[in-house]
């Protein structure tokens, strides 16, 4: 009897074989179709931007962990997801050094100062993008037309400034100006459905977010379909508003999050100075998430209302 060799621990003694790395890889796989489409539409430069944001994100993470004497945790894949997401929200003409700054700010200010993975309040990729948008407002809003690469404008810009409405088909396939990874609605939806199928995201957030935008734009007399198909909404709804770390853990809370973000988005797009509101709508609701969690606890099994 080798009794002294026996491992003693508290139950349960079996674990599910899913883990953080697998979840992050699933997100990357879900983003691939839209990423490839972005590179196809906006050219080789976009690939360089994506690789830059990913690399600078990962390096920033390593530096922070080295300095703080923590375990290097690159293999959890979260830095990769942040870097890729950030890159996908950038204009395809952005100077490389600005992309590097974006990666540093995303991981450094968006994630590591809070204590690393799981501790941050705001979506790191969006923190990076918000920083760049405020710091480099001109470079961050220079757009090109797909394929031909001539300078152009995004559909939301065209609507806001010139009152021109882009046709649905071009919006669906992504044949419009915009950030590298945000234009192809069909492929982003495909990725979103894959995440739903893999149970990596909760349907409640995209459903309530998109549903609110649809209803509100309809009510105030705008074209709801156009609003759903344009800008970074699909990328935001399926890949950023669903970020596990920065969104509510309760199901009711997820409804609140989606509805709140939807209202903010419509207000910004229709009445605000910016043509696009995905970024700030999600960041704002990220900030409210701890509060939402607190007030949306459901009743426990068998509990009756007091």
């Amino acid at each position: 009897m080798l009794d002294k060799e026996l491992v003693v621990s508290s139950s349960p003694h079996i674990r599910d074989n899913d883990n953080i790395t697998k979840i992050m890889i699933t997100v990357v796989i879900a983003l691939l179709p839209a990423t490839i489409a972005g590179i196809y539409y906006f050219g080789f430069k976009s690939l360089i931007i994506l690789l830059t944001t990913i690399t600078s994100s990962l390096i920033t993470e390593v530096i922070f962990q080295k300095v703080r004497n923590r375990t290097i945790s690159l293999k959890d894949g979260s830095g990769l997801v942040t870097g890729l997401l950030l890159g996908l929200t950038l204009p395809p003409t952005l100077p490389i050094w600005i992309a590097i700054v974006g990666g540093v700010v995303s991981i450094g200010l968006g994630k590591m100062v809070f204590g690393g993975l799981g501790q941050n309040i705001f979506n790191p990729a969006l923190v990076g993008r918000a920083f760049l948008l405020i710091t480099f407002p001109v470079k961050m809003t220079e757009w090109i037309n797909p394929v031909d690469g001539l300078s152009g404008a995004t559909p939301l810009n065209l609507l806001k400034m010139e009152g021109i409405k882009t046709n649905y088909f071009d919006l669906l396939i992504g044949n419009v100006g915009g950030s590298i990874g945000e234009t192809s609605v069909i492929l982003l939806l495909l990725g979103g459905l894959y995440l739903l199928y893999k149970k990596c995201i909760d349907w409640r957030i995209p459903a309530s977010y998109l549903g609110t935008i649809f209803l509100m734009t309809l009510l105030i007399g705008q074209d709801p379909i156009f609003h759903l198909l344009s800008g970074g909404l699909m990328l935001g709804a399926f890949f950023m508003a669903t970020d596990m770390v920065t969104t509510p853990i309760t199901k009711k809370g997820r409804w609140v999050f989606g509805i709140g973000a939807g209202i903010i988005l419509v207000v910004i797009r229709v009445y605000g100075g910016y043509p696009e509101g995905v970024l700030y709508s999600i960041l704002f609701m990220n900030g409210l998430t701890p509060l939402i969690n607190r007030y949306t606890r459901s009743k426990i099994f068998g509990e009756v209302s007091k």
Partner: peptide, 12 residues
């Protein structure tokens, strides 16, 4: 043996 604990990602 149990695997090493990682930070909570609030997947819920």
């Amino acid at each position: 043996y149990s695997e090493i604990e990682q930070p909570c990602i609030k997947c819920a």
